[in-house]
Design a protein around this nucleic acid. Structure first.
Lengths: 235, 235
DNA sequence: TGATAATTTGACCGGTTGGTAAACATTACA
DNA sequence: TGTAATGTTTACCAACCGGTCAAATTATCA
């Protein structure tokens, strides 16, 4: 009994030596390393949480819903994540990185038009293959980003600043048309994510006949052409 | 006593002869026409509801919040709108029309490039001047449009189909580049609404120095150029 | 195997939320 | 002015929701 055990005793944010980073771990982890069962369960919970949060937003989701989707009892979820917010937080942290990967890959040394073209394609593939992740962010930002303000002003802004500089350099070198790089990035974000975030509207407008995945092909063709032609230098 | 009065008696959706259309009206409206006080109060409520719903989504909003913003008591709100959903519904119905106005104004007889250019500008002005309305829709659609599916598949699709045909005709006549008109419309929607719906992100990325309204000017310049150059016929 | 730690569950709790009941106040109008 | 219709408020309720507790069950390993 060198330490008091802190099994279920965590009623309050000041848990006597419990550090912020450990919060995600189950409370009774004396062994320090995560067992296989922990990883599996946390995985299942986060998968379920993604399903629910992305569809209803943070406040619109209940722990019971997540528990049902995960096939576990509510207290069992709360054994792995102490609060609803901890689940959401873990989800955002995990997703943010992969969500920004396409922008990271924008290569200053590559051919500018080809780089932008494949950036668009990668973003569109993300929207097609991971719409829930996209909607998770959209929900969050739409409601004022109450949980991720720091990430936006920190790492996100930093990355965008960096890549904006790359684009500005391309423009200055005459390789693409002069344009505001920030608004170019916004335009690529919005047009591509639109197909994930506003999927219901897109489907409704396109109608039954375009119910398949063909709309992503059409969108890719249209967007690549729009941005390439719109940015090409002429005269 | 020809009719039973139905003051507060509406516990249940089958209100003995109460028609769908009347639901929005206060329950005791025997006079059929709306008094000035009714109009004023409903106006105040909808204004408050817009403020709250657009910021937190439907499930994230509470009647108490709306009541506080409106400066009324909760039961008083429920005197004018029988349920939270009725408020939301009335709000959507009212906003949908004005939100689609810019697209309606797209004139088949006008100069194609000029028409598209001013469509973009009008949409951007809407995003700047009515961001709450934009976010209200965004919230709704993001969460699967549970309340407005019919409007999307009906009036909205109809309008878009009509205008898509106009754009297609322009392309066929060689006045603009050949492109998928539906995805063009999606692209204009998404890029412009982005500045309302993702305002927090835009501000975070642009940083303090662009805190003013100047970003809308920059966006207008960028988008007009992007679409005009991207759609111009060349060769 | 047996003891200890890790996991799971049913019952429960306090606060919130959508909505109601009924009394009270005000307005419109004959 | 009187009275019926309209508008407003206080008190309240049942369902829901995030989270806790204690007890039960299962995995781990000396």
């Amino acid at each position: 009994m060198a330490r008091p055990k802190f099994g279920q005793i965590h009623s309050g944010p000041s848990g006597a030596g419990i550090e912020r980073g450990e919060m995600v771990l189950p409370r009774a982890a004396k062994t320090q390393r995560r067992t296989r069962i922990q990883e599996q369960k946390e995985e299942r919970i986060l998968e379920a949480a993604l399903e629910v949060f992305s569809a209803h937003g943070f406040r619109g989701s209940t722990i019971d819903q997540i528990a049902e989707v995960a096939g576990m009892s509510k207290p069992n979820l709360l054994y792995y994540f102490r609060t609803k917010e901890a689940m959401h937080r873990a989800l955002i942290d995990r997703v943010l990185d992969t969500w920004l990967d396409p922008l990271r890959e924008l290569d200053a040394e590559g051919n500018p038009v080809a780089e932008i073209r494949s950036y668009i394609r990668r973003k569109l593939e993300l929207a097609r293959d991971f719409p829930r992740e996209s909607r998770l962010f959209a929900n969050e930002i739409l409601q004022g980003a109450p949980h991720i303000e720091d990430e936006l002003k920190g790492p996100l802004k930093q990355l965008v600043d960096e890549k904006a500089e790359v684009i500005r350099a391309w423009a200055k070198a005459g390789k693409i048309a002069k344009c505001d790089p920030y608004h170019l990035i916004f335009a690529i974000w919005s047009t591509t994510q639109h197909y994930a975030d506003f999927d219901v509207q897109v489907r409704a407008v396109l109608g039954q006949e375009h119910a398949g995945e063909g709309r992503f092909e059409d969108a890719a063709r249209f967007l690549e052409r729009l941005f390439v032609d719109g940015l090409q230098v002429r005269e």
